[in-house]
């Protein structure tokens, strides 16, 4: 077993364990901290995939922005949910069944695919140039439409979030 494989197993064990704790933990704040750990683990997986840019962006966006926002919301709504009771719906066995079925189905379908076990090609010297990636994102021959669509989406989300969360003065 190579070093990369051992690292992958460790990281993925962290990710999966943390994700399970996110879903099962009774105290919502604990769940949020487990989520942070899971997101870190995913960042490490990205680093193993030679995408170090996305590993860093993952920490910045998910831990810095999204997890912080979630924790802020948890603090704002603290004390409304009773931590001592079960945090799962009555119908959770069905949900579990659905998820296990989905996982089994996915793995089965993927294992039929002939490239399922393909190995990674060697990384070319110039495969990973941030400047080229930036140019590709903003050039009309590249991915300008996708990039602009993402910007418009973010703008719409910002306006929507401000409108929804605004306190109505006077009532």
């Amino acid at each position: 077993m190579s070093t990369a494989q051992i690292l992958f197993l460790i990281f993925s064990a962290v990710v999966v364990a943390a994700a399970v704790m996110v879903v099962l933990s009774r105290r919502i704040m604990r769940a949020a901290l487990w989520l942070v750990l899971a997101l870190f683990g995913v960042a490490l997986i990205f680093a193993l995939l030679d995408a170090s840019f996305f590993a860093v962006v993952q920490v910045l966006v998910y831990v810095g922005a999204i997890a912080t926002l979630l924790i802020f919301a948890i603090m704002l709504t603290r004390g409304v949910m009773d931590d001592s009771k079960a945090q799962l719906n009555r119908g959770w066995p069905f949900a579990l069944l659905v998820c296990l079925g989905l996982f089994g189905g996915l793995v089965y379908i993927l294992s039929q695919w002939n490239r399922f076990n393909s190995a990674a090609p060697a990384l070319p010297q110039d495969a990973y140039d941030l400047t080229l990636f930036g140019l590709a994102l903003t050039s009309p021959d590249g991915y300008l439409v996708a990039f602009e669509a993402a910007s418009v989406l973010l703008l719409a989300a910002m306006v929507g979030a401000i409108y929804l969360a605004l306190e109505k003065r006077g009532n």
Partner: peptide, 18 residues
């Protein structure tokens, strides 16, 4: 696996932040 764990959380958790 991660997707299915997340799906389970979406279906089964009570707290909407979760």
């Amino acid at each position: 696996l991660l997707f299915c764990i997340g799906l389970f959380g979406v279906l089964a958790r009570k707290n909407s932040v979760a």
